[in-house]
Design a protein around this nucleic acid. Structure first.
Lengths: 346, 346
DNA sequence: CTGAAAGCGCTTACAG
DNA sequence: CTGAAAGCGCTTACAG
């Protein structure tokens, strides 16, 4: 294995100078730089990152913490984040966690073990951040949920304005003529820290504005963030409330499970029951019928998040909390409710 | 930050002894072990992995190389592999690569840069391995494709018997009454190194056995491994050959795109065109209609692959090439072909 | 602009 | 069974 020592010997300079060339320090002569760079190229030399990081104290790779398995929405963002980081020459580690586990605790442990340069959280429970977020001593970015009410000094966040989007969805469904709307997804305990809560808040505002009462008992069903979760919760919801004509699934993955459940109950979408999702994942564009949804700009989410983190890792850059635009995508899964027994053309 | 030096001071032993306790060396007295472990617990000490790896020369985390974006099949395996590795206390790095890029080249570069303990490849082009596989000087495992014909000494592989499964699919479709079967997926160049080729080989055998001619020109269409790829290739295929009554998509992701394309052409599944996929991803259980497919045992694939790699990283264990069982899952996307204009009940 | 040297936190022969 | 010491490959004041 070739080391910096070999490069020093081969180039005729000291290892100190070689190191300076590698790290783009300004005070190196043109001649030295050229010669050293040439030898490095010839030898195809790559500095040992362990030694480098050991010296620099700032240890291991940027770590992405993904909350939840089988979450196609996060997987899409993950791929983007990873690609951008890679293009920036940064190493990336990934940890998948259960949807309900404590990501902050995991981050703290990882900090002690290998002090990553920084964290990117794909999803996160604000409650955990409120409790222990200050114990993470490297820059962090939270994606898809906002941390703006948290007063943490090391956590930026980029997310869709969930409250507004939730309002938009319900307002849309009501304007389509639905008065019995069901909502599935999110955690049963409405502790205000889960992402579902903000969406729900917007929904409630919309119901209120239209003078409609939303009965959480019969119109809401918690669900894991998965197709299986959506399937199950839809069955439960429709069983306890057969009058529902539209379902808002708080994630596309959940919505896909919901559609399958509706179909298996012998009903059709959107004729019997309309379904609208949230996230705008690729898969939703290929379902039959195509899924109507709130499309989050994952490309922008990923890019802004990474840029923020990189800036804060390398400079004393301030944290940011930003809302990313969303768009409502009208697919084929929402229609006006039909009167019972009425036959409608398409 | 607490280091091994602190533990030594606090426990009254030398750093050498502390190190031996940490690494479970046998020649440590019971008393020393107990005392040191207690202090480590009290201090919540985690050894610095950079220093450790710098010493041990075997550097950074096990690296998983994923070929292709938006590949739900690989993402499922990735999550499992990552979870198992994590439970074993191993760090994991992930690199997503384009479906058509050279993963072996990437691995060689990563070796030079940070010498990972080992690689797990999710998908791989045998041609690349044949050329440069020997240049990767750490243990490797290839998942979902076999390397048994390659004569490499550092590469194990676990995969489904693609040839047999391909045969099974076509045999099944023919027995259902389909004689005009289309196949989509894989690379256009049949270089024999792509995974598609082995599946195709089995398909051709089945056609031959049933005395049917398969015209590659009009019955085959290459496709990227994505929903968009499946959508596009299905359109092309059905345009150039309207007689096709069944499509075998060489991956479920492709199949989902195919179903949507068929639907958009005003045809229905399976009445007009049957579709069968390959992989057995979660999503296929929620499509409308449910996707018939070859289910690969990803859980086993992941577990065997990781165990193999760990064994070879830590001991001089031989490489293995193993076929993992598959099962055919009958969903709702395949039916007998109907005569033109005939009306069939369900 | 450059080199010599200390030191990052750990592991591991070596000697006892 | 244990300690003292060398050394992994690098960075960075320090001195010139």
């Amino acid at each position: 294995m070739t080391t910096i020592k070999d490069i020093a010997r081969l180039s005729g300079y000291s290892i100190g100078t070689v190191s300076r060339v590698i790290n783009n320090h300004p005070d190196v002569s043109e001649a030295a730089r050229i010669k050293v760079e040439q030898v490095i190229r010839e030898q195809n030399f790559q500095p040992n990152s362990n030694a480098k990081q050991l010296k620099q104290q700032s240890n291991s790779a940027i770590t992405i913490i993904v909350k939840g398995y089988e979450n196609m929405f996060f997987e899409g963002i993950l791929e983007r984040v990873q690609a951008i980081l890679r293009d920036s020459g940064e190493d990336v580690a990934v940890a998948f966690l259960d949807e309900y586990s404590n990501e902050v605790q995991t981050a703290i442990q990882l900090c002690a073990a290998r002090k990553p340069k920084g964290f990117i959280f794909l999803g996160g429970n604000l409650e955990f951040f409120k409790q222990d977020g200050h114990k993470i001593d490297v820059p962090c970015v939270l994606l898809t949920n906002t941390a703006k009410d948290l007063e943490l000094t090391n956590l930026s966040s980029y997310s869709t304005n969930d409250e507004e989007a939730g309002y938009t969805v319900i307002d849309y469904l009501i304007r389509q003529g639905h008065s019995k709307v069901g909502i599935i997804g999110g955690s049963a305990s409405r502790i205000g820290s889960q992402i579902g809560f903000r969406r729900m808040k917007g929904c409630l505002d919309a119901f209120a504005e239209h003078g409609l009462f939303f009965d959480e008992k019969t119109q809401y069903q918690p669900s894991r963030f998965s197709m299986a979760g959506g399937y199950e919760s839809t069955q439960k919801l429709l069983k306890k409330n057969p009058e529902i004509t539209a379902i808002f699934a708080i994630g596309d993955t959940i919505a896909i499970g919901a559609m399958r459940a509706i179909k298996d109950m012998g009903l059709s979408i959107p004729e019997d029951i309309s379904v609208i999702g949230y996230d705008g994942i690729e898969s939703g564009r290929y379902t039959i019928p195509r899924l109507s949804t709130i499309h989050q700009d994952t490309e922008l989410l990923a890019r802004k998040g990474v840029e923020d983190l990189l800036l804060r890792i390398n400079y004393s850059h301030p944290i940011t909390h930003e809302d990313i635009n969303y768009t409502m995508v009208e697919g084929e899964s929402v229609a006006k409710p039909r009167k019972r027994k009425e036959i409608r053309g398409r």
